[in-house]
Every structure is written in structure tokens, then in C-alpha cells.
Design a protein around this nucleic acid. Sequence first.
DNA 1: GGATAAAGTTAGCACAGGCTACATTGGCTG
DNA 2: CAGCCAATGTAGCCTGTGCTAACTTTATCC
Lengths: 141, 141
Amino acid sequence: MKNSTPQTAKSQHRKTRADHASELAEDYVEAIAEITDAKGECRAVDLADRFGVSHVTVNRTISRLVRDGYASTEPYAPVRLTSKGKRVAQKSKIRHETVYQFLLAVGVSEPVASADAEGIEHHVSPETLAAMQAFVTKTTS
Amino acid sequence: MKNSTPQTAKSQHRKTRADHASELAEDYVEAIAEITDAKGECRAVDLADRFGVSHVTVNRTISRLVRDGYASTEPYAPVRLTSKGKRVAQKSKIRHETVYQFLLAVGVSEPVASADAEGIEHHVSPETLAAMQAFVTKTTS
DNA sequence: GGATAAAGTTAGCACAGGCTACATTGGCTG
DNA sequence: CAGCCAATGTAGCCTGTGCTAACTTTATCC
């Protein structure tokens, strides 16, 4: 087997850490988009329920989203995505679905594919995503 | 496309968070094993260099490893893995290689496969890992 | 044997992302 | 319209993971 931890390991770990920083943000943005789509609006409780965390945690995470330009809020009002947020949500959703379909295509069961896609999607580079997409297209055609 | 975020999303997010908690530990344990293997011993500086963090950060991460039973240390001495740590290192290494080889097998380039495997490996369930392994075996035979 | 360099330790700070407990607001309903 | 409940907000705490600065130890080399 080839060695898969070359000299660039250091920068790769930096990248992994950087990915982590945006993971939660992406998950939230994606969830906000979905919930807004489904119910017309997205409240903090919806997100707390979705992620299984307290509403306080949700609150502060949303604050970071607002700070970073992904969402906007007013007191006691639903969360709304900015255009930047909507863009990220769209991309996240597509990526999530691609990873999910890809896992199914290589023979992973639905529930596990769903669970693993959740964790994997944030670490998939554009190139890998393209490869997954190609594989799905080839396999399911 | 099928919906990939069912009602169990909450528990899946819990799982994702739990995975995160052990990611760094696994990376460290794997690195300690590799470095010890390559140089006969593993010092904090080696890890600092590997992960691109300060030696202070390494120190405290190692403290957690010791606390959790993965490693043992004495002041001013190299880090050593416990048998529990060695077991984890072995499993991590195999999983990492499998993910890496799998990405190559689906057409991802070496550098990208290496980088993405770094992030993906911690979110791959046994079932998905088995599917990847099967795919690699089938493809490269 | 003492200077110096490299490694390790300690103190103290920041931010993310969890939490509980308590205060406030706002909308529904009697 | 009063009061209650659900949602939101605020205060304050914890752990993990990052940092710098300053100090100690170890090892090495005249």
C-alpha cells in the first residue's frame, strides 16, 4: 500500500481544522433553508429540536451565523438566511445528496448512508465530489 | 431524489458531535504510533510539527490522551501508547488506508485523496468501511 | 563544569460549542 | 383584557483546542 500521509500532512491538518469551523455553520444554514422551505419560517426551537441541543446553544450559533453574514435576525422573530446563506445552503444540500446517493451506490444501506453522509459531506473536496457524482451517474444509469 | 434527513437526524447529529470528540485523539494516537515506529520514540515536538500546532497544545492534548487511557508519559520523556492506544492506532491506520485507497479507486487524484481521507476517515461507520473495502478489492483485482 | 540549545512545563488568554437557571416577551385563550 | 405558556433572551459555567510568554529541565558541546 502507498503511504497516504506525505510531508504535507501539516497543512492538511490545518485544512481539517478549518473545515470543522464551518461544519456547524453549514449544517445550520442547510437546516434553516429546509425548515423555512417546509414550514414557511424557521424558529430557534426548530433548530434546537433538529440538532438535539438546547435553544441557548442554537441562539449563540445563530449569532455567529449573523456575525459571519449567513443569516439575519430580529428579536423574537424567525431566522432568515441572507443571500450568502442561501447560496451556502444550496451548495450544502447538493453536496449532501451527492454523498448520500454515492454511499447508496457503493452498497451502503439507507440508514447508515444517511448517518455517514452527515459526517462525511463536510470533508469532501470538489474533486472528490465530482468523482462521486460521476460514479452515481454511471452506476444508476 | 430521496430525502436523506429523516426523523433520526437528531441522534445522527449527536453521533457526529461524539465523533468529533474522538477525532483528534485518534489522529494523535495514530501519529504517535507512526512516529514511534519510524524514529524509535515520539516527542511532543514531533507531534507539534506533524499537526502544525504549538507544542503547548500538543502537551495538553497528550494529557487528555493519558487521562483517557490511550497513552502514558513521564516528565521530559517521550510519549508512549498504552495497549488500548495501540489498538486504536492500528484500527485508525487500517481505516485511513482503506478510505484513501477507496478514494483512489473511484478516481480521485492522490493528493486530494490523501487530504480528503484525513477528514473523512473519522465519519465512516463499519458498514461503510466494509463497502469501501469491498469496492477496493473488486476494483484493484 | 558551565554555556547554550532544544524540549518540556506552567500560567493565562481566546473562541467554539455544550449546558442550566432565570428573566422577558408575545401571542392565544378564557 | 388578564393571564398563562411557549419561545426567546441573558448570565454564567464547563470542556476542548488553539495561542503567547516565561520558566525549567535535559542534553550536548566546548
